[in-house]
Amino acid sequence: MDNDRVDQIIDKHNGEASSLIQVLLEIQSEHHWLPKSALERVGERLQVPRTRILHIATFYKAFSLVPKGRHEINVCMGTACHVRGAGRVLDVIEDVIGIKPGETDLELKFSLETVNCLGCCALGPVLEIDGTTHGKMAPGETADVLLNYE
């Protein structure tokens, strides 16, 4: 992410230090992670010490300080999904992409995470990719869903 884009985001928030989290969230959602250069720029422009930015960026799970894939997969491991076989769905995904939860593949295509409830238990097992919900996943169908993403 280049500094010009970071500057644009900061300008949108009028360079106010109180908008720190909003700025970080926007960088995160556009770039999928927070590169060091962007954090340094944010600190400079918003006049926020680096320690505070790091504290916030490591506190919230929404932020990542390591590169993430273009597509973010969230596999629901909540109680309902769990009893309906979310474990097997996760196994299939791990096999197909070759990564474990919390990891990102080498091509930066997918990042895999488990979550604890997406709030639509009737659709379990549920899988969310880039915000799109895929319900009633059978382990056999899971690989086909992943093929739709480039």
């Binding site: 010490p49 680096r50 506190f59």
Partner: peptide, 18 residues
């Protein structure tokens, strides 16, 4: 952390994670 921030104003040490 607080001494560095409040007295020295250097912000060299901080908390990370939670």
């Amino acid at each position: 952390v607080r001494y560095c921030a409040e007295v020295k104003k250097k912000f060299a040490v901080g908390f990370v994670d939670r």
